[in-house]
Design a protein around this nucleic acid. Structure first.
Lengths: 226, 226
DNA sequence: TAGAATAGCGAACACTGATCGCAATTGAGG
DNA sequence: CCTCAATTGCGATCAGTGTTCGCTATTCTA
């Protein structure tokens, strides 16, 4: 009856009384991230990761309880690519925007991250560091704590949304993009969707850092006031 | 060399010269949605859906080119549960909040929707209706069209984020929730994460319609001004 | 040095999405 | 009414997946 298992973040990385493992969690996650970077999250198979490590797939289960746990490891690993040490502390918005810019970079570097399943269970150490950093930026703000947490959640959702959008556009060549937009506009022109047609008639907005910062600024101003 | 396939929304539902199919796309999607509602998206297997329809799994591929297309059908189907006919047209915010409330209901009714993969390719008819409706609510707003589209995107992301949160909490009994929160607070109390500790010390915010509307209001005010 | 805990892993299991080819069914054109 | 081509339903099958089991080999602790 001891099917109750503890989170991977609380489980010790290795037992103290046996043979030494050949890999570390970070090493395994690094290999998996490399695979996902170059061939997508679907290419991260127990077999492919084990193969890249030079071992059998069954061995992976000495480190990880399931593939989902492996993905959780990957997510937290790339969350460790941000720099959580620099904080201006004179302008909370500027500090948050800097964080957003870093986060966006991570998404663009690891496109699979945008469609990694939402973290279930408890957060990894780097996710906690992310939270702490964001909250630190807001420390002088006179807002309830849990509302700050809400703000961080929305903040992250917006960064991910825009990054996903950028990645999608990056994968399509501009010619097809124009064609697609034109087709949509023509479809909307049929009269059934006048407002959509109007919206699409305006010149499109370039998705880039500036758009991200502009949107984040407005969203954060709305959420946190002033 | 004719591997080029067209989107399912443009493909005709049935050929005109052969035998009549036994099912409709909507019927298939409805069965799949019912399955997902009661057992999660993973329970939506080609075999299980075909079985529920009383046929073999290979037959499904006469209606759908892949499982992803089936999921796309499901998503658009539940997007059809919203009422796109009522629009006050006196207060854009109120109209958008009404849309958000409906959208939230859909997410809560179909929990799998929060982790359905983001729509790739072009939008289904109900997604287009959603867009048109949201843009209609904003018709008198003096804002660039593509910014309105951005706003709808963020709007939807926020609704989904909060719905996901609600669903997660709904699945956990309050006792465990308290315990989890206390554990996190204690972990943060270690001194390494002071701001996180502070944020968690405040009383938590109930996730419900009111929270959703409050957040949407602030976000939309920030994005669209006043 | 003995013993126990741990790591590595080949082989297997239960599934999955997807394909192929064939038989059954039907509508449209003569 | 008949023909025939288009289309559907689907059993069988394939390649690939996550995961488990049981064994062997290793190595730390006592």
């Amino acid at each position: 009856m001891e099917t109750e298992r503890t989170s991977i973040w609380l489980r010790p990385e290795r037992g103290s009384r046996g043979r030494a493992p050949e890999h570390t969690r970070d090493g395994i996650a690094a290999v998996a991230v490399r695979l996902a970077d170059s061939a997508g999250l679907d290419a991260v198979t127990m077999r492919s990761v084990a193969g890249a490590l030079g071992g059998g797939s069954a061995s992976l289960y000495r480190y990880v309880e399931s593939r989902d746990e492996l993905v959780a490891l990957m997510v937290d690993q790339v969350n460790g690519e941000l720099d959580y040490t620099v904080l201006q502390h004179t302008d909370w918005l500027a500090d948050l925007l800097a964080l957003g810019r870093q986060s966006r970079d991570v998404y663009l570097r690891h496109p699979w991250l945008t469609d990694a399943p939402a973290a279930t269970g408890d957060l990894g150490p780097n996710a906690v560091a992310y939270l702490e950093h964001a909250l630190g930026a807001m420390r002088d703000l006179d807002v309830d704590g849990h509302r700050k947490l809400e703000a961080v959640g929305v903040f992250n959702a917006v960064v991910r949304l825009l990054a996903r959008n950028e990645i999608e556009q990056r994968g399509t060549d501009p010619l097809d993009r124009r064609r697609q937009l034109a087709a949509a506009a023509q479809l909307a022109q049929g009269g059934a969707h006048p407002h959509l047609a109007a919206a699409l008639s305006a010149p499109p907005v370039e998705p880039d850092v500036d758009q991200t910062e502009r949107l984040l600024t407005r969203v954060l101003r709305g959420l946190l006031g002033a």
